[in-house]
Amino acid sequence: MDRPDSIYFFATCLVDLLYPRAGLAGMQLIRREGVDVVFPDDQTCCGQPAFNSGYRDEARRVARAQLACLARDIPVVVPSGSCAGMIKHHWPELFAGDRDEARARAVAARTFELTEFLVDVLDVRLSDLGEPTRIAIHTSCSARREMGVADRIESLVAQLDKVEVLDQARKAECCGFGGTFAVKQGAVSGAMVNDKTAALRATGAGRVISQDCGCLMNIGGAFDKQGDGPATQHIAEFLLERTS
């Protein structure tokens, strides 16, 4: 698509409350490309937690509240693969046969995950101003499989010539977050994140970056609990930090 004059930034509930710096960085990365970034004040959550737990009516009610604040025909950029996937792929399903189906489909069609938007639409060029560093990338399953944009984070980082990316074992395996899965199947989720953190720690990377704050909360929280491990950071913050 052509470079738009303005976009909606759909921050997601997790970023709003827990990782606002990641959201802000994402907005700044887009604004400095000359695109007007609009933050809809009434946005809350895409509805994914309820949808994945089987509570579709509740998910629909919350998703419907978002439709009103994403009304203009401009791209919706989401700093999360799973929330972008919820809007793009599950809103049309959730609103099938509903009075808001057309509106939901329209929003879905102009929704982008942040790294996807930076690469595919803005075609950003980055110059690395940071010190040499070694990182590992954890791509969320929804960015990888649902959105199919796993390579965007890689190509953005590849533009940073002083950043070395170390590959962890079983890179494509889920970190065990899964939203309410982490609560409903706490022990399995714990076993999964233990495997994931072990693989990431084994790379020797100083930092783990990802495009999803859900994974970061899981992986970073586990490193913290374990008492050591790489720092975790959202890709938007990392890119902004390296380039300014």
Binding site: F9, A11, V15, D16, L17, L18, Y19, P20, R21, G23, L24, M27, Q28, R31, D36, V37, V38, F39, P40, D41, C69, A182, V183, G186, A187, S189, G190, V193, N194, M217, N218, G221, A222, D224, K225
Partner: peptide, 28 residues
């Protein structure tokens, strides 16, 4: 179950919606 394997997440000192105003982003 969450904190058996991880530390608890903590809200930031200000939500993004407040930072956005400070940074001069348009909100509507």
């Amino acid at each position: 179950a969450w904190t058996r394997y991880r530390s608890a997440p903590k809200p930031a000192s200000r939500p993004l919606r407040e930072l956005v105003r400070q940074e001069g982003f348009r909100h509507e």
